[in-house]
Write a protein that binds this DNA or RNA. Structure first.
Lengths: 136, 136
DNA sequence: AAAAAATGTTTGCGCATGCATGTAATATTT
DNA sequence: AAATATTACATGCATGCGCAAACATTTTTT
């Protein structure tokens, strides 16, 4: 077995997991929301009209249809008030639009700042360069 | 928000997830075992006596004590025969050693080859260099 | 126009996880 | 030596996940 290659993979996994868990923890503590919740809202915030069809979110967020459906439900029922809203999509009543509500917009901006700080403080300039190179 | 930094992070996550899911899928198909199962057995195979204390495996595999305990149970009850065995640790009867059985050793060798091929075929030389740089 | 196939979402189910707790064994204090 | 605290693992429980099936709404076929 080519141990070099496998070791490199193992290290990448550990590196990524460590960063991810720390970030998830931070978000959980400060907002009672996880990374997946963040991703969903992030893509909505990026979108033109602050809404996207559920099925378009699937490949973005990286969850199954069912998981995403329930994720939306959780965000609708967020303790402090809905962050997101289901809207029926007029052109095709099978679809739904997931709409980012005002409260959600506010949250996502705060979360972005927290995440940015989090990354800034944990990644060296060298790391950042390497990450960029890796995925370009 | 520093979008460059965040984008780099997002891409790293997607890159890693894609590789990880594909690998998990391969192992699931060929061995009806997942990545975590592989990691556990891999560390046992690396160890001097093909056994490690449960608590020493926790930081290696990256799961909680409880999850690891159940993972061992699953490997003990593997359909085709136990891959792993619980052994009481004489010096401290609270501890257990997780021991890699012959069948498990056989499996782990095959899995290593599959994973190595998997990585070889999916990572370019450039990727490999970058990964190594990232985690050194 | 009715029947069949396809599409988008939700729901039922089983599984793996982490947290909190339980239990047994060992270490420390008094 | 008895009482207390700590350690190592197992277990009950709630949660989030993916798969498969159900459901509702188009679209295509006949």
């Amino acid at each position: 077995m080519n141990n070099e290659l496998f070791s490199a993979w193992l290290n990448l996994t550990k590196y990524h997991d460590r960063l991810l868990k720390a970030m998830d923890c931070t978000l959980q503590e400060q907002f009672q929301l996880g990374i997946k919740e963040f991703y969903l809202m992030y893509y909505l915030a990026q979108s033109e009209q602050k809404k996207m069809k559920l099925s378009d979110l699937v490949p973005k967020v990286g969850l199954s249809h069912s998981a995403l459906s329930r994720l939306v439900t959780r965000l609708e029922q967020y303790r402090g008030g809905s962050l997101v809203e289901r809207q029926t999509y007029a052109n095709d009543k099978r679809s739904i639009d997931v709409f980012l509500m005002k409260k959600g917009e506010h949250y996502i901006h705060e979360m972005e700042m927290v995440i940015n700080d989090h990354l800034q403080s944990r990644l060296s300039e060298k790391d950042i360069q390497n990450i960029k190179r890796l995925v370009e």
